[in-house]
């Protein structure tokens, strides 16, 4: 009897010790995660706070954690044609930036998703001689970085006078190997090809079958890829600044506006500069906050399948 209680005590003691160890570990890990969270958010937080502060305060105090009262002044300066001798309006125009980035991002997203769907559908539903070769080719080219072809691309576009034009920024999205690959994987697991046969028997044309039946069924895969395509296009600085050679303000995309305002020596109002940068990331941050759960899941989804 006494012996039994002793062993019972010792096991419960060991269990309690184990539980305490686990709890201690959990707390340590939580604290580390909080620190990493702070590091992740701090630069963005300072950016937003500094956008509301007066330039002199930023210069004399550096960092502050409380917002200042100069947001309206900063906005006015950013859009004031007379401020800094017109330097602001000559390098940064929010509406042009939003408009141009939106046009390019929406067009290339739609093209990339639609034509990738079409390609993946063609490779899944039909049997033809080069089907396997085409699929292997798409997988093989997925990793080729755009930078290594950009010299030839630029020279080519200059020779056919397509520089200073959005066409070479939008049309290449028709061929997005990574998106095709993702949709191929998705179709493998959740697109029964019998459905196509059924549509044929009902007299539906091949292209209409794709539009009416496949597109709605592939909507979840499209949604994930569309978000990533949109964000990637919005954030792209390399290709637009490479191809829009004249760098006209009416044509600049949002990242180009940021680079123009930072490269301008005549501009030294820090509060306004922080505001200009903050406004450039506003749309993607809003998209992210609305769709974050979806996006976070999408990253992992792409990887499991990749």
């Amino acid at each position: 009897m006494a012996n039994k209680t002793a062993t019972l005590n010792s096991t419960s003691l060991r269990e309690r010790e184990y539980a305490r160890k686990i709890r201690a570990q959990a707390i340590i890990r939580f604290i580390v995660c909080v620190i990493i969270t702070i590091i992740s958010l701090l630069p963005i937080y300072i950016l937003v706070i500094n956008a509301t502060r007066e330039s002199n305060d930023i210069i004399t105090q550096g960092v502050s954690f409380l917002p200042g009262g100069s947001l309206i002044d900063n906005i006015n300066t950013l859009f004031d044609p007379e401020a800094a001798g017109g330097a602001y309006v000559r390098s940064y125009n929010l509406w042009y930036g939003y408009r141009n980035s939106l046009i390019i991002a929406i067009c290339s997203t739609v093209l990339s998703v639609f034509f990738s769907g079409l390609t993946a559908y063609g490779l899944t539903v039909y049997d033809f001689k080069f089907k396997k070769a085409a699929t292997t080719f798409i997988l093989a080219i997925m990793m080729i970085p755009t930078q290594v072809v950009s010299t030839g691309f630029l020279e080519f576009m200059v020779s056919i006078k397509l520089y200073d034009n959005y066409i070479p920024l939008i049309l290449p999205s028709i061929a997005s190997p990574a998106v095709v690959f993702f949709i191929l994987q998705y179709m493998k697991s959740s697109f029964p090809t019998e459905i196509v046969e059924a549509a044929r028997i009902d007299g539906c044309g091949e292209f209409m079958t794709f539009i009416r039946i496949a597109l709605p069924m592939l909507r979840p895969a499209f949604a994930v890829q569309a978000i990533f395509a949109f964000v990637a296009s919005w954030n792209n600085y390399y290709t637009p600044s490479m191809l829009l050679l004249s760098n006209k303000i009416e044509q600049r995309t949002m990242p180009m506006m940021v680079s123009a305002i930072l490269g301008n020596d005549k501009i030294s109002n820090f509060g306004v500069n922080y505001l200009a940068v903050a406004l450039s990331i506003l749309p993607v941050v809003i998209i992210y906050l609305c769709l974050s759960k979806f996006i976070v899941k999408g990253v992992a989804l792409g990887a499991v399948k990749g």
Partner: peptide
């Protein structure tokens, strides 16, 4: 139906040839 397969994947390969393969050769 085989011809539909080629038709469906054609835009991808045309765009890829024009915007990636030719630029690579050109480079």
């Amino acid at each position: 139906y085989a011809k539909y397969g080629y038709m469906f994947i054609a835009p991808f390969f045309i765009a890829y040839a024009f915007f990636m393969i030719y630029p690579l050769i050109n480079t």
